[in-house]
Each structure stands twice: as structure tokens, then as C-alpha cells.
């Protein structure tokens, strides 16, 4: 099977150049350098047609940047993005446009991703009309059908975004993404801002759409519970790198990387009452100055000398289950959860 999207050794750096005063100071001998953030650092991720991949990480780990690169709305600094087996940067214009249209993104905050001065009819109908997928006179009909599909009352066709609640606005964002018949949907924290009862409605909608339209999802979230519910495969990011990736069942049954284990044991669930919180120490380091070797070593309870020097690569530890931890090369030393994580998340 040809993967739908395939990222190979993708990196993305954000550089803040020096201003005049800083250049002058450096000329005079001050130790000032350009600040470079390695948002994504050599990441490979393959997404097969029809698959739901959950991308999990804490703030600043680069998960949104990776999502944007995979959606084709942000160029990578290094690496190759393939769309249906072909290098995206080498595609002829028409094919490249089709690939971009086929990848649509749904954002966390619908209020900042919907134009407040446009009606729902324009927000949803604009793109398909512009791309010649539907004639302008048929747009209203198409928008009505889409609104029904995502659970909005079509009589609200001429309303503005502020007249809707948070959950309804998220439905508008979904309808807008669906309007251009995408194959690949990138959800960037799309349910994080919603109340739980509304969040469940939107998650169910995502699953229905997947069944009906055969969609492929990259589901970016910090919430392991949501990701466990929706994903076929899970990838964990820490400070710009994927540290573990596995089919969801295997992942939650036998997490391997020490960071993953810490993350899983710290997700609060109602099954654990009046528990003893036993958090992993330290803070997430700044991506401006990432630690050497394994990025997690300053916080890792198992870290040893090699972790400080050498970056661990992703190695297969079971079928389809990869993890980047030096412990896996030392028989009998691999990290294992202090408490069974099957009950968690």
C-alpha cells in the first residue's frame, strides 16, 4: 500500500536574525548568536490511507509545526514530504494544487480561524467556488447539505460566527474543511477548548465522517485519553522528535519510552482516587537550547552517560512499535511502568 502522506527526516528551524544593535555588538566582540529554534528535528512519519494517527506531546514539542508541514501549509527546512508516493516539491503545478486541496486542517480555536465578518454561507462556500468545484449558483445548496452533515441547522446559513457556541463553531470549521472534498484531515487540538459533553459530540462526528467519507486523519492533541479513543496508531513527540510510535493497542498495553511511561502514569483519570501524585521531575527544556544526546535525559529516571552524548534512534522493539531509547539495546534494562498503565488513559 502506498502511504497517503509520508514525511522523511523532516526538520523545521525558525531563526530570529540579529538586529542592527546586535550585529554591531557582535562586531565589537560580544558573544551574540542568531537564535534558532529546532521546532521539528529529523522526524519521519508515515500515514496510510484510512488511518487515524494520533500525535501527542506537551506544549512546545513541535507537534503543531509538524502538522502544518504535513498539511503542506508550512515548508520544511530539510527532509522530504511525499504525497501518495511522490515528492511534493517535485509535483507539477496542477497535482501540487490537488494535493494541497486534499489536505485540510481543523484548528483549536474556531473563533480565530473563522472570519468574523463573513456569513457561514461564505465561510463554507468560498473555497469550493474559488476552486471551481461548484458553480456559484449551486453553492448555497452545497453549503446546506454540508451543514446538515456536520449537525448544524441549515436555517443558520446567513449567520455570523459570533452567533454560534464553541461546539457549533467547531462544526463550521469541520464543514469548511470538508467543502473541498479532502482525503486527509489534520486536526490540531480540535476538541481541546470544548466542554467534555460537547467534545464527545465532536469526536463522534469525526468518527462518523471517517466511516462515510473514508478520511485519513492526523489527530494532534495533548490529551492521551482522546487520542486513545480515536487513533489507530499513536506517535509521541518530545522537544521536536518522535520518541515512540506504535499501533494504539500495543502502545497502551506496553509503552516503552520512559517519557511515554511518565506521561501515561500522570494522566488523571477517575479510576484513580485520592492518589499519590508522583510526577516526573523538571520542566520541558527550551527548544532554543535543547539538551545534548537524548532530549529527555535531564528528566529521565533511567538516564546514564550514553544518553547525555548520543541521540538514540527509533528502533523497532515489536511489530510496528518503534522507540528511541538506549535502554532497549541493553537486555533486561528496558524501562517498564512502575504501575500497570493499561488501567490508565
Amino acid at each position: 500500500m502506498t502511504p497517503l502522506v509520508e514525511a522523511t527526516s523532516i526538520s523545521r528551524r525558525f531563526t530570529r536574525g540579529l538586529d542592527y544593535a546586535e550585529r554591531l555588538a557582535r562586531f565589537l566582540g560580544a558573544n551574540i548568536e542568531e537564535r534558532v529554534v529546532h521546532a521539528v528535528d529529523g522526524v519521519s512519519l508515515t500515514i496510510n490511507p484510512g488511518e487515524v494517527v494520533g500525535l501527542v506531546g506537551e506544549s512546545g514539542c513541535g507537534k503543531s509545526t509538524l502538522g502544518r508541514i504535513m498539511a503542506g501549509i508550512l515548508p520544511q527546512s530539510d527532509g522530504v514530504m511525499n504525497w501518495q508516493g511522490k515528492d511534493m516539491s517535485a509535483l507539477p503545478r496542477a497535482e501540487a494544487k490537488a494535493a494541497r486541496l486534499a489536505s485540510q486542517m481543523i484548528f483549536q480555536d474556531p473563533m480565530s480561524s473563522l472570519n468574523p465578518r463573513k456569513t457561514i454561507r461564505d465561510i463554507i462556500g468560498e473555497a469550493p467556488v474559488a476552486h471551481g468545484m461548484v458553480a456559484r449558483r449551486d453553492a448555497a445548496e452545497m453549503v446546506t447539505a454540508l451543514m446538515q452533515r456536520v449537525g448544524l441547522d441549515p436555517s443558520y446559513l446567513n449567520r455570523y460566527p459570533h452567533q454560534f457556541s464553541g461546539g457549533q463553531r467547531q462544526r463550521i470549521g469541520i464543514a469548511r474543511a470538508l467543502a473541498v472534498n479532502p482525503r486527509f484531515i489534520i486536526c490540531d487540538e480540535s476538541v481541546s477548548a470544548l466542554d467534555v459533553s460537547i467534545q464527545a459530540q465532536i469526536l463522534n462526528l469525526f468518527m462518523e465522517l471517517r466511516q462515510e467519507l473514508g478520511l485519513t486523519y492526523l489527530f494532534i492533541s495533548h490529551d492521551l485519553g482522546v487520542v486513545k479513543h480515536i487513533s489507530d496508531r499513536v506517535a509521541i513527540m518530545y522537544l521536536g522528535r518522535i520518541v515512540e510510535s506504535a499501533p494504539a493497542d500495543a502502545f497502551f498495553a506496553a509503552p516503552n519510552h520512559p517519557y511515554t511511561i511518565a506521561l501515561l502514569s500522570e494522566v488523571p483519570t477517575i479510576k484513580q482516587r485520592k492518589r499519590q501524585f508522583n510526577p516526573v521531575k523538571g520542566e520541558i527544556p527550551s527548544p532554543l537550547h535543547p539538551p545534548s544526546g537524548c532530549h529527555f535525559h535531564p528528566r529521565c529516571p533511567h538516564a546514564f552517560d550514553r544518553c547525555r552524548i548520543e541521540r538514540p534512534i527509533l528502533r523497532e522493539i515489536a511489530a510496528g512499535h518503534v522507540s528511541a531509547c538506549h535502554l532497549n539495546e541493553m537486555p533486561g534494562k528496558a524501562a517498564s511502568p512502575a504501575i500497570p498503565t493499561t488501567a490508565i488513559a
Binding site: E58, S59, H222, L224, E266, F277, N278, P279, E283, I284
Partner: peptide, 11 residues
């Protein structure tokens, strides 16, 4: 807050 930081505050 992030999950690992939340856990620290709760502790």
C-alpha cells in the same frame, strides 16, 4: 498546564 507539570502542582 501540561500533564507532567500539572502532576507536579497537584503533588
Amino acid at each position: 498546564l501540561d500533564v507532567t507539570i500539572q502532576s507536579q502542582i497537584l503533588a
